[in-house]
């Protein structure tokens, strides 16, 4: 069953129950418990195409979104993120419950998912070939991956590229993409069918709005894929598009420093990075316009080298 088939009323009841709601997000199962309607409404909209699993399913992460104890909530309501009984972050304003859930879930994944090599990278796929976009925050990887997702590519993640050691394939986690500040209007203005959640102003990253992942991408959330292209993107306003081939040793070091758990994975991490670097075509990309970058990436993927 998908989350939207449950309906908001039943979601509210189930999320408040002892079992909570088990969401299948692709590589992981997340058990969510909450009694906050404002949070559950946004969850229901942005995760509407995600499957719900039976309550006795093994969950990788147990998350509670609720109000802190005390009288403060009568004046300025707040919300906390609790995982496995611990509260790793300070409270957020109640209105920011959904961004807190998303950032908290990122934190859980980054801290615990060491069965996979985790790159800090967006990833999309077309024709069975994955394009990995590793980058630092602010480089435009979320915006570019959102644009690709709205332009016929399958969306796997805007934040984590999870590589399975057994076969080097990438596992999808096609969660909503948090667009920030100017990127929100850029995506809305360019892709009229883009569906966004509410605006969250004054977060630590400015104004944030989440792009709902394409339905087709969510339906393929169990389909792992091999990498083909590794592109380090950088958005730079008013510049001509530039694509530069990278040498492989340089890419190994870039990926090693980009990964959340390269050193922790030891030899397995090295083998995965080495194999991926060997098999992929690797480039630096500077871009400023979608009408240039989207056809270029389509063409690049189609080339057989």
């Amino acid at each position: 069953m998908k989350l939207k088939q449950l309906g908001l009323g039943n979601l509210v009841k189930q999320a408040a129950s002892k079992e909570g709601v088990c969401l299948d997000i692709g590589a992981f199962c997340v058990r969510v418990k909450s009694d906050e309607i404002i949070f559950l409404e946004t969850l229901a909209f942005l995760y509407q195409d995600f499957p719900i699993l039976p309550s006795d399913t093994f969950a990788d992460f147990h998350i509670v979104i609720t109000r802190p104890k005390g009288v403060r909530h009568y004046l300025k309501p707040q919300v906390i993120f609790v995982t496995d009984g611990q509260q790793p972050f300070e409270p957020f304003p109640l209105s920011h419950a959904f961004p807190l859930f998303e950032w908290g879930l990122n934190w859980c994944i980054a801290r615990r998912s060491h069965q996979y090599l985790m790159l800090h990278a967006a990833v999309v796929e077309k024709n069975g070939k994955a394009l990995i976009l590793p980058a630092l925050p602010g480089s435009g990887k979320s915006t570019l991956s959102a644009a690709l997702a709205m332009n016929g590519w399958r969306f796997l993640s805007d934040e984590f590229t999870m590589i399975r050691p057994q076969d080097g394939k990438i596992l999808p986690i096609p969660r909503p993409t948090p667009l920030k500040n100017a990127s929100i209007q850029v995506i809305k203005g360019t892709f009229l069918n883009a569906e966004m959640g509410p605006l969250f102003p004054k977060t630590r990253k400015g104004t944030v709005a989440h792009l709902r992942p394409p339905k087709q991408s969510v339906e393929q959330l169990k389909e792992a894929v091999l990498p083909e292209l590794l592109i380090f993107p950088k958005f730079q306003a008013n510049t001509e598009i530039q694509l530069n081939l990278l040498n492989k040793p340089y890419v190994v070091f870039k990926l090693a420093s980009n990964a959340f758990n390269y050193e922790l994975m030891g030899r397995t991490g090295f083998e995965l990075v080495k194999n991926m670097t060997s098999s992929c075509r690797c480039y630096n990309l500077t871009y400023s316009r979608f009408d240039q970058v989207l056809p270029l990436l389509d063409d690049l993927l189609m080339q057989n080298v």
């Binding site: 040498n247 040793p249 190994v252 070091f253 090693a256 050193e263 030891g266 030899r267 090295f270 080495k274």
Partner: peptide
């Protein structure tokens, strides 16, 4: 160029 991984230190 050659990349060398040292499994003892975890360094590349």
């Amino acid at each position: 160029e050659v990349i060398v991984y040292n499994s003892l230190s975890g360094e590349t």
